[in-house]
């Protein structure tokens, strides 16, 4: 038994020996291309610049007033700002991903490559999320500054970062979805912002809605799952599941939309 598995493992090794022989790796290739593109794209630099500038200003202002009023330090303020900014940043980062491929005709190239449609979508999404993760890594400078001048609650900061990271994944997936809908980047961007605003305001709109809709509106609120849990140091599985579900759902629909291009 053990001998057999050993042998089969060995033969597998042998067949896989030549580098990347006959094993197209579309997901990885697309991920690399998209992540690389962010480092040559003015919009991506603008997003990074705006994110770091705005969160930096908020951070220093907040810090100054807390010192002034002797208030306890709060490492989550920048992240609260960040998730709000995601309404605009996520569509900015994702609007071109599929819209441009469609417009330039390069989608025809991708769709005739030996790559699954889902891998194309997933590769693009992961490229965008990886880029945003890099921005968030740079933002780790804030808790370090905070820790050097006071003793903030590190637990809350960690959960808030995890929450904001999940939030950004969901926001980017939604942005990508609208990039698949149209071949016009600007339209994709606007639709993405609109969708984010609706999801953001869902909780605020809930009290005005018919009673039977209220719980639903509260549940789909993209902000509620962050500010009332992760930002308070709580990791609730429901909230994790919410963001994961948003990502998976948006990516699934995006894949379906890309597939549907074949039928037109």
């Amino acid at each position: 038994m053990t001998d057999e598995t050993l042998v089969s493992e060995k033969t597998e090794e042998v067949t896989e020996a030549p580098p990347r022989q006959g094993r197209p790796n579309g997901l990885w290739a697309i991920f690399k291309k998209e992540l690389g593109h962010y480092f040559t794209s003015p919009i991506a630099y603008f997003v990074a610049f705006a994110t770091l500038l705005l969160t930096g200003l908020i951070f220093s202002n907040d810090l100054r007033s807390r010192v002034l009023y002797q208030a306890p330090p709060d490492g989550t303020v920048v992240l609260q700002t960040l998730v709000f900014l995601m309404i605009f940043l996520a569509p900015l980062l994702t609007m071109r991903l599929l819209a441009e491929e469609t417009r330039e005709g390069t989608l025809e190239l991708l769709l005739t490559m030996p790559v699954r449609d889902g891998d194309i979508v997933l590769g693009k999404f992961l490229g965008a999320w990886a880029y945003f993760t890099i921005i968030m890594v740079v933002m780790l400078v804030y808790p370090f500054i905070l820790a050097s001048v006071s003793s903030p609650d590190q637990g809350v900061i960690i959960t808030a970062y995890i929450g904001a990271w999940l939030f950004s994944g969901a926001a980017l997936a939604i942005g990508l979805l609208f990039s698949a809908v149209t071949e016009n980047q600007i339209v994709a961007g606007f639709l993405g912002v609109a969708a984010m605003v609706v999801l953001w305001l869902a909780e605020i709109l809930a009290p005005m809605a018919p009673p039977e809709l209220r719980p639903f509106l509260r549940e789909i609120s993209i902000e509620g799952h962050f500010s009332s849990s992760f930002a308070r140091g709580v990791i609730d599985l429901t909230d994790v599941a919410y963001y994961v579900f948003m990502m998976a759902g948006a990516l699934f629909i995006t894949t379906r939309i890309v597939e549907s291009r074949r039928w037109r």
């Binding site: 990347r20 094993r23 991708l110």
Partner: peptide, 12 residues
Amino acid sequence: DFVAELRGVPDR
């Protein structure tokens, strides 16, 4: 290089 990787070309 991008296309070759998508296609899994050896010794790209």
